[in-house]
Nucleic acid binder design. Structure first.
Lengths: 190, 190
DNA sequence: CATCTCCTGTACCGATCGATACAGAATCGA
DNA sequence: TCGATTCTGTATCGATCGGTACAGGAGATG
């Protein structure tokens, strides 16, 4: 028998894919095994806590990715416009132009939210705060920056829902473009 | 043994509640039985096609409710502003100010979409078309009305996601207010 | 080569899944 | 009042669920 996988982190992408597509309840260990290429033995070796631990690990992994690829760049952007652009590029890539659902958003909608309420809420709070921080640093008034940041994050989530339901990636990209324009307008007025 | 329920329609609210909260895969027949007060016998009598038929019936029921409470009033509104207001009131009520998920939106995000892709897409197409129709009738340019209607429906879906994730009904209502303002602005400019 | 730790496949557990079969009570039309 | 129909509870089906136990091979360490 082989040690065929280097680390438990290698299982996370497949895990995330299954959870995203089938939800927590629908992600059976058979599906997970197929998607990750791991048998029950390896799975429970890496995640002794079972499905719940797998789900928590995936949530943490997604949050870490956004932290590095979106939130931190937003907060540390020298040029506000460049920060916004890089966020939109990362978002479009991550969500596959609206063909891949937002795992965290989707879990927040149902009963799956309950065991993970705090990490889910923290993800969105962090996103909104990072965007608001960028706007405030660029001179936008605090309260306007807060509602605008909420609108943009909310708008992205809505675009994921709508683009997937209508199976229309161009709708997603067009919505991102309009949200970008709203952010630019606020910057220009500041 | 009793005939305790008048019609199969009486089972739909409970059915919808379970599907909304637990998703298609997570809605077990035990949960469904508890929520509807019906045993397996009655359930399969009313829905010979099993879970799939229950799900289809719920989707159709939700769509019918929106048709009567939202879409048709939008299309037939004498006063555009009144039509928009009534839509927002109905939406706020239906989604419990963002505490109840959108069953159709949520199903569109995952694998549950596949068997129901057409009704799901039709629901959103109809909503957008109804809103666009109201805007065009009020004098808004066709293309502007189209993107604005998309933005509003998408914005509502995003607000459901965000408000539920953050467990903040006021965020939902505030977002509805801002979307209403955007619609009013477009009307005023037309 | 020996040994020890880490990983993996397999078999298996009890529980629950969705679905079916069917007898019988409630209700309706006559 | 008396079938015929409509609904309902229960028992049961095979399949699959999430989770556990454990033997044993691969790789590192010496």
């Amino acid at each position: 028998m082989a040690r065929m996988i280097a680390e438990r982190a290698d299982a996370l992408p497949g895990l995330a894919e299954v959870f995203r597509e089938y939800g927590y309840a629908g992600a059976s260990l058979s599906l997970i095994g197929t998607a990750t290429g791991l048998g029950r033995g390896s799975l429970y070796h890496f995640f002794p806590g079972g499905k719940q631990e797998m789900a928590a690990a995936v949530l943490a992994d997604v949050a870490a990715w956004f932290d590095a690829a979106v939130f931190t760049p937003l907060e540390q952007a020298d040029d506000p416009r460049a920060g916004i652009d890089s966020m939109m590029v990362a978002v479009d890539r991550y969500f596959g132009s609206g063909q891949r659902a937002c795992l965290i958003g989707a879990w927040g909608l149902g009963a799956t939210r309950d065991p993970f309420a705090e990490p889910i809420a923290a993800y969105f709070r962090r996103w909104i705060a990072a965007l608001q921080s960028l706007l405030v640093q660029a001179g936008v008034a605090e309260d306007h920056a807060a509602t605008l940041a909420q609108d943009v994050v909310s708008g992205i989530q809505g675009a994921v829902v709508l683009a997937r339901a209508l199976n229309d990636p161009s709708l997603f990209r067009a919505t991102l473009g309009r949200l970008t324009a709203r952010l630019y307008t606020a910057l220009a007025a500041a």
